[in-house]
Computed example of a mutant assay.
Amino acid sequence: MQPTPASHHDTAMPDWSAIAAVILGVTAFSVAQGLTYPLISLTLEARGVSTTMIGLNAVGFAIGLGAATLSLGALTARVRADRLIIASLVGCSLCLAAFAATSSLATWFIARFLLGYFASMIFMIGEAWLNAACPDRLRGRVSGIYGAGMCAGFAAGPLAIPLLGSESSFGFAISAVYLAIVAFATAMLMFSTRTVPEPSSTRDLFRFFKVAPLLVLMVFAFGFADIAAISAMPVYFVKTGHSEAFAALSVTVLALPTAIAQPFIGLALDRLPRHAVAMAASLVAALGFLAIPFIEHPALILIDYAVMGGAAFSLYTCALTMLGETYRGGMLVAGSAAYSLSYAVGSGAGSGLTGSIMAAGGPAAGPLSVGFALLAFTGLFAFSRRA
């Protein structure tokens, strides 16, 4: 299937019901993930689990993201996309209930894997649907609103950690109930949608890696930086003398300004060269990570973290916009699946490697390694575009 020019779809009417359903589902999961990602890390840290094992636990989530891509083609051929999203929200709810019900590390690894699997389904199908429901003239702004909802969810989740503490299972239980309620609300909203993503295949998935390597690499860089920021960095802050409340607050400060920034990034993507916006975002994120070990005042750390978060997440908003700009039909689902797989690999590297590097080289080695990795990506992206 050849890409269809975006201008062919510029006069199409947006399917606002589908757009709203996707944003609702993803925002709800982001609230739960924003709470549980740092809560899992901090809970394991409080139990005396090593940073390497904490990183490996997060890798279980990334492996689940990757595994979901292998079954996506078969599932979309047999089950309607809206039903898959609802089923995945319910699956995420059950996984979070497992975190609340047991303290077994082995069970947590299994639940983390399944959480990654169901989350991947939500994001892959939802993002393909978002692009199918949106004309290109609005694509950047809709992607920005989608990103804002996701980031706002991440920002809201950690606010409960200072109240619940890292030793309580109540946060996981609340998240499980919340996602179950949202799954029902999403199902009601989906009755009025007009569009649905087309089925894809594993062949389309691997073809996308061949025709769009820069987009795939952009998502890899985002995944690497994103998981390092929300999983490894809270541990970094605790190890450098900050409180658990500050570590949790850093995730909120990372996400909240990012949510505010994404609609403006979306507007820029609709008005400026999209690759230039992506390169600028990558450079700012790299510099933000590199600055962290050299900043001592907590307020300045949070300001740097806010700018860094907005820039890092903008990479994904750019990639999502450029996907819908160029591809249609089954290639939208294939592209979303390729993004999920690339994010899984990137997030696995960002979490596992950063945890191991911190264990071997000290806490400051974590943010420095992520910053240099993003600088390398920025240079490669600029060189590839020039070539």
Rank of each mutant, 00 (worst) to 15 (best):
P3G: 15
T4P: 03
S7M: 08
S7V: 09
P14K: 05
D15W: 08
A18R: 06
L24S: 13
G25T: 04
V26D: 02
A32Q: 10
Q33T: 06
Q33M: 12
Y37T: 13
P38R: 00
L39A: 14
L44F: 09
A46S: 15
S50P: 08
T52W: 05
M53E: 07
M53G: 00
L56I: 11
A58S: 14
V59W: 10
V59S: 15
G60I: 00
A62I: 04
A62K: 01
G64W: 01
L65C: 04
T69H: 00
S71M: 05
G73F: 02
L75C: 10
R80I: 10
A87F: 12
V90E: 01
A101V: 07
A101T: 08
S103A: 11
S104W: 07
W108I: 13
F109V: 13
I110L: 15
A111F: 09
R112D: 11
L114Q: 06
L114I: 09
Y117G: 03
S120A: 15
M121I: 12
A128L: 03
W129V: 14
G140L: 11
I145H: 07
Y146R: 02
G147Y: 07
A152Y: 14
A160F: 15
I161M: 13
G165D: 12
S166I: 12
S169C: 10
F170T: 15
G171W: 11
G171E: 08
F172R: 01
S175G: 14
S175C: 15
V177L: 15
Y178M: 10
L179E: 05
A187V: 02
M188F: 06
M190K: 02
F191T: 13
T195A: 13
V196W: 06
P197W: 07
P197H: 07
S200D: 03
S200F: 02
S200Q: 05
D204L: 11
R207N: 09
R207E: 09
K210D: 14
V211T: 10
A212F: 09
P213M: 05
L214S: 11
F220H: 01
A221Y: 03
F224P: 11
A228G: 11
I230C: 06
S231A: 11
P234S: 12
V238C: 06
K239C: 04
S243H: 04
A245Y: 02
F246H: 03
A248F: 12
L249T: 14
V251K: 01
P257Y: 07
I260T: 13
I260Y: 12
P263Q: 01
I265Y: 07
L267P: 05
L269A: 07
R271H: 10
R271L: 12
R274V: 06
M279K: 06
A281K: 01
V284S: 05
V284R: 01
L287I: 13
G288A: 03
F294I: 05
I295Q: 07
I295L: 13
A299Q: 03
A299S: 09
Y305E: 04
Y305W: 13
G310H: 09
A319G: 08
G324Y: 09
M331L: 12
S340W: 00
S342K: 00
V345N: 05
G348H: 04
A349I: 15
S351L: 02
S351W: 01
L353R: 00
T354D: 04
T354F: 01
G355C: 00
G355M: 02
S356Q: 10
S356N: 10
S369L: 08
S369E: 11
L374N: 02
L374P: 05
L375W: 07
L375Q: 03
G379Y: 05
F381Y: 06
R385K: 12
